[in-house]
Design a protein around this nucleic acid. Structure first.
Length: 342
DNA sequence: CTCGTCCGTCCCCTATGCAT
DNA sequence: ATGCATAGGGGACGGACGAG
């Protein structure tokens, strides 16, 4: 009698569960059916896929030679009528000129054939995907030769999780006093010749050999660091991108990547913020490029650029400029740089 | 052989949702 | 409110691949 009651309630519950399950299944079915629609990419690929290879190659180059962290909003904008020249020091005057010059650089970099589709999200999506992808590859490549680049044991760099923060030589390069006190500077010693920090920034990027090694490995392949081009060989980035000289963005890129390789960070986040170190790589890049663009035509920077170009591209070796002959320019650089907040 | 690229896999982190 | 579990996203890494 009692049992009968229990059985009945169970049956009712069972029925309820079955109904519930059925409706959930229905819901799931419709959700599943709608899901592929999110991947609109299949559709747009038919229209714009002809440009895919071109965008990919120029986007990779762009991420290394021009802008590490392009703003996604600006990538879809139209080129202004009279843009601020990308290589003009005026570019850093106001937020408006920065945006304008950014677009000038963007449209200058990507070939004419792409200009008409550069306002599409297809373009910006692809650029934003390619840049971190290419960067991850470069980082991977560089980790293998980081020991040679920094003249330190390679085991410091081959494993991302190696405790680099505890190594005194690395602390010295980054200018942190100890493993406990990890405050990272915008312009760490590694950027200066002889690791001698210079608050006035007169000699910043003077440690050009290091930057040149980073750039050479990235542009000409890792083996180019040790022996001359072994004839033939696969196409390196420099060949694919037709790079014959470095740019302000490339030097800034190399500096940022070098600091990242030395840092305790295990991954290079697209946000530009180091998780362990709390280093803001985006800010570093911005400041480095700003200094380089602003000072590009000064004797001091042209000398650095000439040295790097010569090392990376094995151009005809001109006599390197004597740094001591530049004191007159130094004070001008000095004053201008003082305007930078750091 | 050496390149760069692509792809599968793993791990870590975060957000979300569920249960307490 | 709080704690736990699970899925999803992003990045690193290793291997495969094709080109020179």
């Amino acid at each position: 009698l009692d049992l009968f009651q229990v059985l009945k309630t169970l049956q009712v519950q069972m029925q309820r569960l079955q109904d519930e399950n059925k409706s959930i299944k229905e819901e799931n079915k419709t959700l599943r059916a709608e899901k592929p629609k999110r991947k609109r990419r299949v559709d747009t690929q038919h229209e714009l896929s002809v440009h895919e290879d071109t965008i990919t190659i120029y986007a990779r180059k762009y991420g290394m030679m021009m802008e590490m962290f392009p703003s996604s909003d600006l990538l879809n904008k139209k080129l202004p009528e009279a843009p601020t020249p990308f290589d003009s020091p005026d570019r850093y005057k106001t937020a408006a000129t920065q945006d304008s010059a950014f677009l000038h650089e963007l449209y200058r970099h990507f070939p004419e054939s792409l200009h008409k589709i550069m306002e599409s999200s297809y373009f910006s999506d692809m650029v934003l995907k390619c840049i971190p992808d290419a960067r991850a590859n470069e980082i991977k490549k560089l980790r293998g030769v980081a020991g040679d680049i920094f003249n330190l044991p390679s085991k410091y760099f081959t494993s991302t999780s190696f405790e680099r923060a505890t190594i005194p030589e690395i602390q010295q390069l980054l200018g942190v006093s100890s493993a406990a006190n990890q405050t990272y500077k915008t312009f760490p010693p590694i950027l200066f010749p002889g690791l001698k920090e210079d608050a006035s920034l007169k000699t910043v990027f003077g440690n050009w050999e290091l930057l040149a090694r980073v750039l050479k490995a990235s542009l000409r392949g890792v083996t180019s660091l040790h022996h001359r081009s072994s004839g033939g060989g696969a196409h390196t980035n420099a060949l694919k991108w037709s790079v014959h000289q470095i740019t302000p963005g490339a030097i800034a890129w190399a500096a940022v990547i070098a600091i990242f390789l030395l840092s305790p960070d295990t991954e290079f986040s697209s946000s530009g913020l180091g998780k362990k170190s709390n280093i803001n790589y985006k800010t570093l890049f911005y400041n480095y490029k700003k200094v380089l663009v602003s000072k590009w035509s000064t004797k001091r920077v042209t000398s650095i650029v000439a040295n790097i170009n010569s090392y990376v591209f094995e151009a005809a070796k001109g006599p390197s400029v004597d740094p001591s002959a530049e004191q007159d320019h130094a004070s001008a650089i000095n004053r201008a740089l003082a305007a930078l907040d750091m």
